[in-house]
Amino acid sequence: MARRRKSLAPKGRDDDVRIIAGFALGSILTAIMILVVVIAPPATIGPSEGELAPDFSTDAYSGANWENFRLSDSFDYEWNADEQGEWILIQFIDTDCPYCWTEGETMSSLHSQWSNDVEFITIAVELSINGHDSDRAEIEAFRDKTNYGTDDNDGNGCNSGRDNCINRPGTVHNWVYAEATSGIMSDWEITGTPFLAILQPDGYVAWNQYENDESIEDAMERLVGGSQ
């Protein structure tokens, strides 16, 4: 009697090759990470002192019209600590925030003293607080000290709608006012305003308002040097 031939379905290997695949993949990933760290180690990015300031690209107003502005365009990547260079003062404000309203004068004073050595950049945010709605016209009026709103505390104008923007303390702010996005606020960990930070010319954060008790004037004096 003829014996029926049993067709043999291919059978898998006895050992579990997935472990070998896992080890092989681990080796590949380790090699990649070593290569990345050797060739181009990732920078620590954040608003804390010693970190590289988070870059952003957004629309900004510099007195004429709104144009694209990118923070890193102001960085001097070749800068050395023993060299002169243009430092950067970053200020986050909300045009309806009372503290930002009064800080307008401080900023004017700082600008008159350090404008030759420091680039001033203000970033206008809109905090999620009742009465803190703002638009580009309000930001322009806050910067330029032009007629916007009333002094009647009717919600129309700057400083939570208490004041006409033309009455902001200080002089006209002749520097860039950038419009914040949610991405910028989250990268810079902004939870309230005003917030100030001083960046080295190469973009690293040298002073963060929330991280020490030193006043902005003392910090500018210490980091940038004598005022004009």
């Binding site: 291919p10 059978k11 898998g12 290997r13 579990d16 090759v17 997935r18 070998i20 695949a21 896992g22 092989a24 993949l25 590949i28 990933l29 990649i32």
Partner: peptide, 24 residues
């Protein structure tokens, strides 16, 4: 990209090493 392709490499490598396994 690195994480995604790592997953794909793992799956393909496992299949390449044993295409007849129960899990193939």
């Amino acid at each position: 990209g690195i994480i995604s392709f790592a997953l794909l490499i793992y799956l393909s490598l496992s299949l390449y090493l044993d295409r007849h396994a129960k899990w193939a």
